[in-house]
Simulated scan of single mutants.
Amino acid sequence: MNNQTDIDIVIRYLEDPENEQHKTQLNEWIQQDAGNLDIFLDMKGMWHGDPLPAASAFDTQGQWQVLDTMLDRVPVAVLPEVAQQKSPRVIKMNRRYWWAAAAVLLIAGTWTFIGPGGYKTYATNQQQDSMQLPDGSMLYLNAHTQVRYARGFGKDNRHVRIDKGEAFFDVKQNDALPFIVNAPEVEVQVLGTAFNVKAANTGVKVFVQSGKVSAAYKGIEKKVILTPGVEASLRRNGQEIDTRTHKKNNNILAWKTRTLTFDDTPLNEVADALADFYNVQIKISNQQLADKKLLATFPNMSLDEVLDIMRKTLRINITHKNDLVDIY
């Protein structure tokens, strides 16, 4: 598959992301080469207006001037005639299409910074996964999580980016190279610790298991220092940082340990933990039950098994249909 075809596949998807055929073609192309995912993410970011890092040896301004000239002089692009001497195919290209094509050229010019040679991308679907980073730190990924780190990680920096999902970091101490996690609008910095970062649509949550970390909104002086047992919540497009101290038996890391523990926990908090762990919606129709307390441990059990035990232990009614659980 040549570069022009690659561009066509990505552009068609970006122009109409709901088109199933475009989704299929993009997915097949990404599966062909691990580096194609990095290329797609870079093009997607620039398509939506993210700034493009420029390599010092690359004349970005000059290339944009050349592109401008091209746009003024070339209203159409003509593909070469095929061997059967069919009539040339003419494609009208709008400025956005040319812009995306130019973006690919700029990516090539800064390949060592943002392309497949610049960082590695890891993503999970339904499964969980774990890996050891080049510096010896351990990274545990929840389902539906995507992270990136530079190929030079551990040499001159220890920067990791979590684009979405949830990850637990067990960081090897290195005072000379602080470990930094970048999440949407939020930066977390540590020297050596174990902590959890969850990047959701509403914001980012950081929970510390051991050591100390700082959490801050990017571009804002205000930050908070977190110690073991403390969780910080940083909202999207926000400036305030809310903190909460959890008791020892909490379920923030249940996705990693696969064990849910409730120590006289109110039913409304139980519902929140189950909803997060099993990715379902839970409604307590009878609010008089919200203060009922549960004392139980569920080691790697299915949702229906857990609900059956709760039903018998608390003597309550529970229905479970599809992704909706009703407690009444």
Rank of each mutant, 00 (worst) to 15 (best):
M1N: 02
N2Y: 04
D6F: 05
I7F: 10
R12S: 14
L14V: 08
D16E: 14
P17T: 13
E18A: 09
K23Q: 15
E28W: 13
I30E: 15
Q31I: 01
L37I: 07
I39T: 02
M46Y: 11
W47P: 06
H48V: 06
G49E: 03
D50A: 14
D50P: 02
P51H: 14
P53L: 04
S56T: 12
G62E: 12
W64N: 15
Q65L: 15
Q65P: 04
V66Y: 15
L71P: 03
L71W: 13
D72P: 04
V82W: 10
P88W: 13
V90R: 09
V90K: 05
I91K: 10
K92V: 11
K92N: 14
L105I: 13
L106N: 03
I107L: 00
A108F: 00
G109P: 04
T110N: 06
F113C: 01
I114Y: 02
K120P: 01
T124H: 01
L141N: 09
A143F: 03
Y149C: 06
A150Q: 06
G152D: 08
I162D: 08
Q173P: 06
N174W: 04
A176G: 13
P178D: 03
N182R: 11
E185Y: 02
V190C: 00
T193C: 01
T193R: 03
T202G: 04
V204F: 02
V206R: 13
A216K: 15
G219N: 09
E221I: 01
K222R: 12
K223E: 08
E231N: 03
E231P: 02
S233T: 14
R244D: 14
T245S: 12
H246L: 15
K248F: 06
K248I: 08
N249H: 10
N251C: 13
I252S: 14
W255E: 10
T257V: 07
N268Q: 13
E269V: 02
V270A: 10
A273K: 06
D276F: 01
Q281K: 15
K283P: 10
I284F: 02
I284W: 08
Q288T: 05
L289D: 00
L294E: 12
V306G: 08
L307T: 05
R311W: 03
I318W: 04
H320A: 11
D323Y: 12
I327S: 05
Y328D: 06
Y328F: 03
Y328S: 10
